[in-house]
Design a binder for these strands. Structure first.
Ligand SMILES: [Mn+2]
Ligand SMILES: [Mn+2]
Ligand SMILES: [Mn+2]
Ligand SMILES: [Mn+2]
Lengths: 217, 217
DNA sequence: TAAATTTGTTAGGTTAATCTAACTTAATTA
DNA sequence: TAATTAAGTTAGATTAACCTAACAAATTTA
């Protein structure tokens, strides 16, 4: 049996390598991400290696094994299906779903998650625009552009957010933005990359940090 | 913060005192119920006492404090609402819901459970006929008759089951029984209390153990 | 009521998951 | 390349939740 904690480590490994675009993950990076000390992460990594869920040599980068990746993907699948349930069926707002899904993602029942998926009518994306892996499926690696990559004078469409924190998501709503909204890039400051964007006829200034957390096409 | 394990101990204490009709619960009884050793239960009870969730003196019976009872009732409320959700919305059968609800009952989110209750349209009973406490409500003590108490020649109606195990529930279905079915008691054996009952025109023999797990009115 | 049985507690030990402090190896920079 | 800094590991400690074995108190039975 796999523990909640082990699942969280595996999920973090998959997400970090996904976000960074690199295969291997560092111990400190992982520890930072999970809010534990490097020594703690190192202990757990040795246990996950004993269980053949991760691969790594002393002082080298960590990678998930096939088995480890499978578990991590299942946890992400559950997380995103639960977020969708909370958003679609229980009237949660998109900034509230993540924290509860962090708990729900660890419920062990294949039947539950398959029935939930059916109940939701096989959704492809969660409320933040992230793809939901299908049963037994992989997390497909897609190269997504952020709002930072859009040149001045161009129109784009928001498809997802990178940061899932409540603080950021509420800010996004305040700017009048949401999934599938069109964004027009009016101008950009050379000095600090501050952008002026227009959404539904309303102009707002957004920072570099903000822009890099908005995925667009 | 209260742990899963602590919640399970509190829930067990409430359920045992409920089932036995007595206020105090014994250490061995509790330990047996939770599938742990008395020494383990004793350790945990001391920790729950430190947190002011139970009351007991050395070598005496254990009772829940107001705070402990409140938590236990909330856990039962969550358990029964989740069972209802699985049964009503996700096409689970009544013998499958309990085990998954054992996990779901520990999810911490007041908003989640209140929204779930609304989504289910404020159900009064779970799939096994047990009452669902309302938000902030108590678990009302009701004296329920079992099929054992019904004399020969009398008609009654099944309203709930005591045993929630999959094995028992599947057996109940096999006998053609379900919540709200009418049962006619045809005969009873003096020697071993074996009963012949009639449900929807079909007669079956049921044991004493079976009969005491069927609540009727 | 004394003995036997049941019930409850204590002492001491294990494992998972965390920590701090000290150390080693790898990578960067001067 | 040598020194410095960053990254990763080890040692030793803590806490929750469990265990076994031994003991103490309460209850039942003879
Ligand atoms: Mn999320
Ligand atoms: Mn999680
Ligand atoms: Mn149940
Ligand atoms: Mn439980």
């Amino acid at each position: 049996m796999i523990s909640f904690t082990e699942e969280n480590y595996l999920k973090a490994l998959l997400r970090i390598s996904f976000d960074s675009g690199e295969t291997g993950v560092g111990t400190n990076e992982l520890a930072m991400n999970l809010g534990v000390k490097p020594a703690t992460a190192n202990d757990m990594l040795k246990r996950l290696r004993d269980k053949a869920l991760v691969d790594f040599e002393k002082y080298k980068k960590i990678t998930l094994t096939i088995a480890g990746k499978k578990i991590a993907t299942e946890v992400i699948r559950k997380h995103r299906l639960w977020e969708t349930f909370l958003y679609e069926k229980l009237e949660f707002s998109w900034d509230e779903v993540h924290d509860v899904a962090e708990q729900l993602e660890h419920i062990q029942s294949t039947k539950l998650i398959d029935k939930l998926e059916k109940f939701l009518d096989y959704p492809a994306f969660d409320p933040h625009g992230d793809p939901i892996p299908s049963k037994g499926g992989e997390l497909t690696k897609q190269f997504r552009k952020t709002l930072l990559d859009i040149p001045v004078g161009q129109l784009c469409k928001m498809v997802a957010v990178k940061d899932n924190s409540s603080a950021f998501l509420q800010y996004v709503v305040k700017v009048g933005l949401g999934i599938n909204n069109e964004i027009y890039v009016q101008s950009r400051q050379e000095y600090d990359a501050l952008m002026v964007i227009e959404v539904n006829g309303v102009a707002s200034s957004v920072s570099e940090k903000f822009a890099e957390n908005i995925y667009v096409v």
